[in-house]
């Protein structure tokens, strides 16, 4: 079972993701969700197929105070993804157990944006670090080696500290979507083996979705209210 946890919210994209062999998708509007319900076209898909569709909330923040305020405003059921890049925001996101995914921690930086301290905190709080395929493919060919280097650094830290790692497409159009097996082959370029790549595309995303499905029933890690 493969999942893509970062796709722009559109009917066409969801259909294409399903055609390519994924079993679930997490869509983002890339703005704060004002309408908390699913759009009409996605509701029908959500209800009548085995394909899982979830909606996430992307948080863009200027500073750590702003990040904490936005996290408090979110609902328990929303999958929270924090757009990183700034070192303080990366660290703050890794320290917050309410955050599910930290996206683009390397954005606009000359390093991977994750150090041993954030890595340890991410592992403790089960914050997944995202490796975005769109970011890699949109980088200029002469700079691609840098992005591959960042991914390699993150992978090295992941092997040491064992924080969750996910691979996403980050697609905005159908031209940015790829089959899971093509992505697994691509991850070989930055030193990921097949087993690790499959895990990052299947088990880790599934755990994130399951954790959020529990929503407000989850009290603390490992305990939940049974109705």
């Amino acid at each position: 079972m493969f999942f893509d946890l970062h796709v722009h919210e559109s009917q066409e994209l969801v259909d294409e993701v399903e055609r390519l062999g994924y079993n679930g998708v997490l869509t983002f509007n890339h703005e704060e969700i004002k309408n908390k319900d699913y759009p009409d076209n996605l509701i029908s898909l959500k209800n009548d197929s085995s394909f899982q569709i979830r909606r996430g909330l992307m948080i863009y923040s200027k500073n750590t105070a702003d990040l904490k305020r936005k996290i408090q405003k979110s609902r328990n059921e929303d999958v929270l993804i924090v757009y990183g890049g700034d070192l303080k925001i990366n660290r703050s996101a890794c320290e917050n157990p309410r955050v599910d995914i930290i996206s683009h921690p390397y954005h606009g930086r000359r390093d991977c944006g994750i150090n041993h301290i954030s890595a340890r905190k991410a592992a403790e709080n089960e914050v997944a670090v995202e490796l975005n395929i769109r970011y890699l493919l949109r980088s200029r060919p002469q700079n691609r080696y840098k992005v591959l280097g960042y991914y390699r650094e993150i992978l090295k830290l992941q092997r040491k500290f064992e924080f969750p790692l996910i691979i996403t497409s980050g697609a905005h159009s159908i031209f940015e979507l790829h089959t899971p097996h093509d992505i697994i082959a691509l991850t070989n370029c930055f030193g990921m083996n097949e087993e690790e790549a499959s895990f990052a595309l299947s088990e880790t995303p599934r755990n994130i979705i399951e954790r959020r499905d529990l929503g407000s029933n989850a009290l603390v890690k490992g305990a939940r209210i049974i109705e």
Partner: peptide, 8 residues
């Protein structure tokens, strides 16, 4: 196979 997704 790994070059297939790099074509954009």
């Amino acid at each position: 196979r790994s070059i297939i997704p790099t074509i954009t």
